[in-house]
């Protein structure tokens, strides 16, 4: 059963990568990143269950805290960019392009 959980985690992570690659909507890209974080969390919790140790749960908590901080900052950036450019297309946001 452990293997099934880990396979599910791999599938979700790959779907997250596919979302980041194939979409250009900022929100979808952002939520696909969240999906990858969640897939990693599932892996942590599964391995924690396998070894009956609590470290995986603590790591999952840390990942959730980082995801919350990331959500606050990323959404602030999205609001700022939407105010300046009026678009949600990731291709428009090329301020750092050389």
């Amino acid at each position: 059963m452990i293997h099934n959980y880990l396979t599910l985690s791999v599938i979700l992570f790959c779907l997250g990568i596919l979302g980041v690659i194939s979409r250009r909507n900022v929100f979808i890209v952002f939520m696909a990143i969240e999906l990858m974080l969640n897939a990693a969390n599932l892996g942590f919790v599964t391995l924690s269950r396998l070894h009956l140790s609590m470290d995986g749960h603590v790591l999952a908590l840390m990942v959730m805290a980082v995801a919350a901080a990331e959500a606050a900052l990323a959404l602030a950036v999205v609001i700022l960019l939407h105010k300046h450019k009026g678009k949600l297309d990731t291709d428009v946001f090329n301020l750092l392009k050389g």
Binding site: I11, M31, A32, L35, L42
Partner: peptide, 28 residues
């Protein structure tokens, strides 16, 4: 959870994507 993730990367409007992502989160 897989269906929710597929919905997230396939729906055009971010609102639909976000709702199906909520399904993924709850089933996780």
């Amino acid at each position: 959870s897989i269906l929710g993730a597929l919905g997230l990367i396939l729906f055009k409007h971010p609102m639909n994507g976000a709702m199906s992502f909520v399904i993924t989160l709850i089933s996780l």
